[in-house]
Nucleic acid binder design. Structure first.
Lengths: 102, 102
DNA sequence: AGAGCGTATGTCAGAAATGACATACAATCA
DNA sequence: TGATTGTATGTCATTTCTGACATACGCTCT
């Protein structure tokens, strides 16, 4: 598995075609990573729409600027839990979350 | 916040009306808990549809029977990450996950 | 009654995620 | 140029989650 390393490689732009194929990710692993990245993008989108800096959002979340940066970067050390909690604080509804991940 | 205690109380059936109201949960907290419980129910539903025992599912997940039981019980120590990963292993699609949480 | 099966619950050592900090990078000013 | 602002990235101590184990509960048999 070693999905951490895989994610790092993926992030580093080490593929031209399908990352899933190249890294031999299972369907479940692919789906999981796709969901996480979709949530990451949504977070950045929402933060910017609200005209917040990462530091300001971090305050609202009782977190830190560096963690917000990692959330938006899809860092492997960030859980879906944290992404969801953050999006909820930003006022995203369950319905919109659902739309985001599907 | 102390959402652990709140979740335990909720589980213990300590309300007749709205649990959110009674426990002074914020909208975000309510939404988060609702999503978790929806995923819990879906997990049990899928496991049973596949005619698996908790122990058998635990094997498929490289987890343990007790953790599966906790997942299905909506235990506060279970993350949404774990629920999602488990559902994906059970063959649930992103689309169905989305439908579940919304 | 006792045996077997599936599930629930408490505990805990080890693993993973988190906030915080330092620091580097990039862009935009004056 | 240097200063400021926002973001990225690495590290680390603490917190939280996880699998494993023990054990209890409920049910269905014989």
């Amino acid at each position: 598995m070693d999905s951490r390393k895989k994610a790092r490689l993926t992030k580093a732009g080490w593929t031209t075609g399908s990352t899933a194929d190249f890294l031999n990710l299972s369907d479940e692993e692919s789906a999981y990573i796709e969901m996480k990245l979709a949530l990451s993008r949504k977070l950045r989108e929402r933060r910017m729409a609200n005209k917040l800096t990462q530091a300001e959002l971090a305050d609202a979340l009782a977190s830190s600027q560096s963690r917000v940066a990692k959330m938006e970067a899809g860092d492997p050390t960030v859980s879906i839990d944290l992404l969801i909690k953050s999006l909820l604080v930003l006022g995203v509804s369950k319905k919109e979350l659902a739309r985001t991940i599907s």
